[in-house]
Design a protein around this nucleic acid. Structure first.
Lengths: 227, 227
DNA sequence: CCAAGCCTCCGGCAATAGCCGTAGAAGGCC
DNA sequence: GGCCTTCTACGGCTATTGCCGGAGGCTTGG
């Protein structure tokens, strides 16, 4: 996610006929003052002002790189608020609970804590889970578009996606397969019956598929207790 | 698609600690000689050689922009083979037929030519269709990942996606909703019964959903005959 | 009014980019 | 061997960048 944003910003500035304005646009998007930016880069404030004013027609890529990295670093230093907000912008109705673990959790530990039943034993449970998202899959079908998937993934795609209200489990797997980002794990909470196709799709993607019979409240509590 | 590739290449070169090597990488990916590149840019061949050798630590973005645009323009001048190949890389088993129209077709014209029945009359049929892809939706479920969607979209996402082997039509719409790229139109060929949910999803995406009762062979013939 | 924060404009200057042309190397073909 | 194609290394030179520092402007709060 961070690298994608990084590359996009750099690409945009580089290709812009008015790079100065593009730099300003992004600086304002990150809610960073010229003063803070110049301080972070260790240059005089007038340097930033001149760049944004377009005094330099063709800044060198080393300069662009430093500026882009400064945006991201400053944002991260202040809690990554802009990147986070971009990712979490408005919890949608279909997100029941979402959280980043303070320390990554080993996949087997997570499965154990939710009394999970592994439906894809052929796939090694060796991922490190950074967080989870509990999704009302019935509501998700009609309300989530691909843009919303970025919210679902929150700060990291190295997470467990937990689907509630699952009947056969096909739709979530189909949507996951279609999306460029892949979770570290998929959990179905009290599914009626997990279709063989859903398991096959999980195997094709190499994503562990876990089933749990915990009630939703209990499940969320346990996930949150993981840190 | 073109702009995405353009931005990605520029971003990559810009962020690279060794921009020269990145430039070379992409030049070779486009199968362009330094001579052709230098000729296209109207500079001496040794200029390109020096850039790729990393003689310039921090090329200006105007230079990077010119180089990236040269890659794309040269590729397009020779039939856009690399971009096309990237998009069409290996027709997969689930793509029954794919084609770019020589001239864009108005949506109503396409619908008429396949004797289509509009399931989403509330959505205006005002798109210009650049091409079509006929997909075996049964096979697509298990064989297509998100990367393959780029193949499905071919040269342009302004196309009609035609799904055969459709029962209720949910899965194709779910996959389309999850993917960042959206087609101009979706056609279901002889579906058993189009689920109300599928129609709802199409409406939510603002994508016209068309049903046709033509046999697959007849359908492909008619689409191909559109130009 | 004053101070602080934020920003703008511009002259100055060392360092580097952008590009040329030359000399040479390597590989393939006749 | 000679020729052609493709590429490399490098000196030279003009134009531009990267950055400083100074002067000044505007806004807000005490």
């Amino acid at each position: 996610m961070r690298d994608q944003v990084r590359e996009k910003i750099a690409g945009e500035i580089c290709l812009s006929e008015e790079p100065g304005r593009t730099i300003r646009k992004w600086r304002e998007q990150f809610v960073i003052s010229q003063q803070d930016l110049s301080r972070h880069l260790g240059v005089s404030p007038s340097v930033i002002s001149d760049y944004e004013a377009g005094r330099r027609r063709s800044p060198g890529i080393a300069t662009v790189r430093k500026i882009v990295d400064a945006f991201l670093e400053i944002d991260e230093k202040t809690g990554a608020n802009v990147l986070k907000q971009y990712s979490l912008a408005g919890k949608t109705d279909s997100i029941i609970s979402i959280k980043e673990f303070s320390a990554e959790i080993l996949a087997p530990k997570l499965v154990e804590s939710i009394e999970g039943d592994n439906l894809t034993p052929a796939i090694p449970l060796n991922e490190h889970i950074h967080g989870y998202t509990v999704i009302d899959s019935v509501r998700a079908i009609t309300t989530l578009s691909s843009f919303d998937y970025l919210k679902i993934y929150g700060w990291s795609s190295q997470r467990a996606l937990v689907f509630t209200g699952v009947r056969f489990g096909r739709s979530p797997m189909i949507a996951i397969r279609a999306h460029p980002l892949k979770p570290a794990m998929v959990v179905y909470q009290k599914p009626e019956h997990v279709d063989e196709l859903a398991i096959r799709l999980a195997e094709l993607e190499g994503i562990p598929l876990i089933r749990t019979s915990l009630a939703i409240g209990d499940l969320v509590d346990r996930l949150q207790a993981l840190g």
